[in-house]
Nucleic acid binder design. Structure first.
Lengths: 241, 241
DNA sequence: AACAATAATTGACTTTAATCAAAAGGTAAA
DNA sequence: TTTACCTTTTGATTAAAGTCAATTATTGTT
């Protein structure tokens, strides 16, 4: 269990522009830890006491019904933050969190956030910024699960992945294994496999394991974004530094 | 276009505990208006300048793809607030808003909220409370669209409607027409009609137009909530005053 | 290298809900 | 009251994705 420096935290959007003493206090209560794949960080319904930052690896947020059916709410990667929206006493986690790929996670007590958001308007506004972004993200997710076919959902994921990679090259690497990605996109692994090969036929992409080559994003976006209400390239990604 | 009193606004959660002068200022910029069914308040992608409170009638929030397919994000009713999460300059509406049933809507400029959230931390915290609730709401929505059948989604809606009605009587009145409700629950009207009659057979409910009679909620919740990760009765409704 | 374990693919079949089409029921205006 | 319009229901068919089962790849471990 390692310590965390204020400098490391300052790059995270919700800590932008904070007074050094506030950041120091927050950092002093933070712990960095390597967790192995399969480790459960918290369970849906638990009283929330910590929020987390992913430094490496991947974290799966999911809900589970009595009969064991999982819904993946999100999969988080480097520098993603989660649990920070449980800002009020007796708030409970709205999903479970499991380490999907071994990595380093920073844990921070929610008590600091709950205290500081009353005293420190910067933090409150930063939190509003972060949480309203999440809200937009979920609106898009809901639309996509409804209007897009399985094949289009994969295409959309690939396009967004390509936009995030600022290298400009149309080579996409799947960030985690296909089973998890299938669940993340709301489909069965069998459906994922079939849908990906259909996408390959439609857009002429080349697939080598987790690596996908495209000559151009045009064919893919024409096919995929016809069932989306937002024109490609997605606004929420192109303005990001 | 009528004026709005501070007293009327004070009952809305995001204005809880505000200084009277702040509330007066906000109320002085508010306008109350009766809008007819079909009126569009804003379009997905417009720069957001107002937020709204529903005093009567219903408002449909939706997204639309190029081919005309609509996804209903939410349907809002009395005392619901919307557009208040567009707190930053150049934020755009993440969905369109249409009056689904003629009613009275209060419009308020976002500029006040954007200004006050920096000066008045109470407002920032109130907004955080409101927006984190919305977030939980969307997680549930996503899960339900994924794990529940069309029939169960209707059952879930009815149960939640029954819990909101604090009268305790297991008589549920559909708040708006079936086409809209079908869209709200992510299904076609034909599917809704068939699914409702299946639900009738399974749970022994009696349906007279928009009025649904149940002897007990037990049969309905047993059938419906088996594909949900939260035990009935839903926690987010029972603690509400 | 050989083994086990897990991940990915493929095939056959089933289920659910969408679609297309038509009829029945309601509501409001002329 | 009659007409027109819209909502709801019902029927027949289709399409998409889920399920079950078997096989092939891939990965990691001893």
């Amino acid at each position: 269990m390692d310590d965390v420096t204020a400098a490391a935290l300052s790059k995270i959007p919700i800590f932008n522009g904070l007074e050094p003493d506030v950041l120091d206090k927050i950092a002093s209560h933070a712990h960095q830890n390597t967790y192995k794949k399969g480790k459960i960080l918290f369970i849906h319904g638990d009283i929330a006491e910590h929020y987390y930052i992913v430094k490496s690896g991947h974290v799966k947020l999911f809900r589970e019904t009595l009969d064991g059916t999982q819904t993946v709410i999100d999969v988080l990667s480097e520098n993603d933050i989660f649990g920070h929206s449980l800002l009020f006493e007796d708030n409970r986690y709205p999903s479970s969190a499991e380490i999907a790929q071994t990595g380093v996670i920073i844990s921070l007590p929610l008590s600091d956030l709950r205290e500081e958001m009353y005293k420190n308007n910067d933090i409150a506004v930063n939190l509003l910024r972060a949480i309203t972004l999440q809200l937009n993200h979920k609106d898009r997710e809901l639309e996509h699960r409804f209007t897009q076919s399985a094949t289009q959902r994969i295409g959309c994921f690939l396009l967004r992945q390509a936009l995030k990679d600022k290298t400009g090259r149309p080579v996409i690497t799947l960030p985690y294994d296909k089973m998890l990605l299938a669940a993340r996109l709301g489909m069965q692994p069998e459906t994922f496999s079939r849908a990906l090969s259909r996408l390959k036929k439609k857009t002429g992409m080349k697939i080598e394991g987790a690596c996908i080559h495209l000559d151009t994003l045009d064919r893919l976006s024409t096919y995929t974004c016809s069932s989306c209400s937002v024109k490609f390239p997605c606004k929420d990604l192109i303005n990001k530094s």
